[in-house]
């Protein structure tokens, strides 16, 4: 489904991603973990097409298409969804209007009929229940004045409405208390199907207790330095990121010897 090869990306003069290789197949959940500044959020944003990052080398293929050649909206229409670490406030645009515009944009791209506001209300009612969201939020401006937890839940509502094939969750767990974390994770799990894949970017292991990954990758210094199964997350939890970094520098020293 998604194949990343030798991906390098800069922000300004700084190189953040220094050669990423990652393959995500249909139905798989990949966790990307790593210390602050390792490049894991950058990876998520580059896949979604954030204009602040410049890709300098490598390729990203999604269903055989050159993803890097696609605009962010084309990526979304093709079934990629990024749940933002810091969801953006848009005062003056209601959630209902925004969600319906997005829903219809994606439907239109898929050659499906656009829905009117009444039909859309039915779609929404069901999706909002997934994350225990109060229907009154539909008439509020997108994320404006929302608490941190509400913003994260709103991202999952959008995820549910747009029904992507590849969901990328960028530190969706940050700023959530344990109850909110469970609600959000339950919502994500209910949306799982064998056809869909996800990349879960997180600093901490605790989200992975709820959203269980098939693979765990550890990012450090803009590279994937270790990959493994879900047990790798537990090892990280126990030993911390220093453990990986020490192992890396030991290996580096060894190769120079």
């Amino acid at each position: 489904m998604l194949e990343i090869k030798g991906l390098r990306a800069n922000i300004g003069e700084n190189e953040i991603l220094k050669g990423i290789d990652l393959t995500v197949n249909k139905g798989e959940i990949h966790a990307v973990m790593g210390p602050n500044g390792s490049g894991k959020s950058t990876l998520a944003q580059v896949i979604a097409g954030h204009p602040a990052y410049e890709v300098t080398a490598g390729s990203v293929t999604y269903d055989g298409q050159d993803l890097l050649d696609m605009e962010p909206e084309e990526r979304a229409q093709a079934g990629i969804f990024l749940a933002f670490q810091y969801p953006v406030e848009i005062p003056g645009v209601t959630n209902a209007y925004f969600l319906r515009s997005a829903y219809n944009a994606v439907r239109k791209a898929r050659g499906e009929e656009e829905v009117d506001p009444l039909e859309f209300l039915d779609v929404m009612e069901e999706k909002m229940k997934l994350v225990d969201m109060d229907p009154s939020m539909l008439n509020r401006s997108v994320n404006a004045g929302f608490s941190g937890g509400e913003k994260k839940r709103n991202e999952i509502v959008q995820l549910a409405v747009l029904n992507p094939r590849l969901a990328i969750l960028d530190e969706t767990d940050s700023g959530l208390d344990i109850d909110a974390l469970r609600i959000v994770a339950d919502g994500v799990n209910k949306l799982r199907t064998p056809e869909k894949s996800a990349i879960v970017v997180t600093h901490y292991q605790r989200l992975l207790n709820y959203i269980v990954p098939d693979f765990v990758h550890v990012l450090a210094g803009g590279r994937i330095v270790k990959s493994g199964g879900k047990e790798l997350a537990l090892e990280l939890e126990e030993h911390g990121y220093d453990w990986i970094q020490n192992e890396q520098s030991a290996a580096g020293a060894g190769s120079r010897a």
């Binding site: 097409g49 909206e73 933002f84 994606v106």
Partner: peptide, 21 residues
């Protein structure tokens, strides 16, 4: 970018932001 990442094209996103202002 946030709006485009939800599938809105560049024109829709700009129009909606201007209107929202």
């Amino acid at each position: 970018f946030y709006m485009k990442s939800r599938g809105l094209d560049a024109e829709q996103a700009r129009t909606l932001l201007i209107y929202a202002f």
